[in-house]
Design a protein around this nucleic acid. Structure first.
Length: 296
DNA sequence: CCGATTACCTGCACGC
DNA sequence: TGCGTGCAGGTAATCG
């Protein structure tokens, strides 16, 4: 389920075990994910210390002490989990989840912090739409990241910028918001959620909220605000449920979040006094959930 | 420039 | 119990 908030949640969850840690061993248990692993994947990572863990859109970046950057994408079904053991002085057993299905554990990073604390950071991905690539220089210049649009976090995405991005676009709003070249990090869930919060129909021609009229300006302001808050709220929820998650089962990633319209076909629209109900339609081959009564 | 379709891959919920 | 169908949060290529 990884859209930007989930990837950010994963990044924060991995930080304690990975930032400042040395990769004492790396395992790639198959030759590829979505793409083949880069040349000498294991050799180039083994022995490196990870100095920083970053994120751009839905991409995680692991920065090594020799300048190498590992770019990771979780695809549709990728997740990380952390299993922590004792220190090298006091080894102890790794916590093992008997319930965990290890069939799709494709990559394992064996880490050790300066404190001697050791962990296993395990990448699991049943569908293998995820991938890992190397970047030698600035990751933002890597072909995979170079074309990405504005982050919906922070204040950069305001109504004016959003209007300029949508100006002249004939595509439906839904498609425009999913376009990573415009806004980077929104996915199928949060696009539906943001459009509902903004009271805008996913079917609307994108360019129509970028006109010079007062109404269009209000709508682009409202949509930009809705995008930023839905993302910020999801990150906040992920962060708070994550602490629990780590303690109980060591897994990182997907928090259960309750959505207003996503996957709620047929349910009453949660807008107070609306009286409409949530519909599911298909746009560019993917489900969109919205309320035609309050989203225009 | 646009949208629709297909592909990649496994798991799961569903109806029969 | 099994089998077929459709669907799933990702990106990218192709075709009209």
């Amino acid at each position: 389920m990884p859209e930007l908030p989930e990837v950010e949640t994963v990044r924060r969850g991995l930080q304690p075990a990975l930032e400042g840690a040395r990769l004492v061993a790396v395992e790639a248990r198959r030759p590829d994910l979505r793409f083949p692993f880069p040349e000498r994947f294991v050799e180039r990572l083994t022995g490196r210390t990870i100095t920083a863990l970053g994120r751009r859109a839905k991409y995680l970046t692991m920065h090594a002490d020799d300048g190498l950057v590992l770019i990771c994408h979780l695809g549709m079904s990728g997740s990380f989990r952390v299993e922590t053991a004792g220190t090298s002085e006091m080894p102890g057993e790794f916590h093992h989840q008997r319930s965990k299905n290890e069939t799709h554990d494709h990559v394992v990073f064996h880490t050790e912090l300066p404190t001697g604390e050791r962990s296993r950071i395990i990448f699991n991905d049943p569908r293998r739409f995820g991938f890992m690539l190397f970047s030698e220089g600035v990751p933002d210049e890597h072909p995979m990241l170079a074309g990405l649009g504005v982050e919906p976090t922070g204040n950069a995405l305001d109504g004016t910028l959003l209007a300029s991005l949508l100006e002249g676009r004939r595509s439906p709003l839904k498609a425009a918001l999913l376009d990573q070249r415009l806004i980077a990090g929104l996915g199928n869930i949060y696009v539906s959620e943001a459009l509902w919060r903004a009271g805008l129909s996913p079917l609307r021609e994108a360019g129509t909220i970028a006109k010079a009229s007062k109404k269009a300006r209000q709508q682009s302001d409202r949509l930009a605000g809705a995008i930023r808050t839905v993302i910020a709220d999801a990150i906040a929820a992920g962060g708070s449920s994550l602490r629990d998650h780590v303690r109980t089962d060591g897994s990182l990633g997907y928090f259960q979040h309750s959505f207003a319209v996503y996957d709620r076909e047929g349910e009453p629209c949660p807008t107070p006094g609306c009286g409409g109900h949530v519909e599911r339609i298909v746009q560019s081959g993917r489900s969109t959930f919205y309320c035609r009564a309050c989203q225009r």
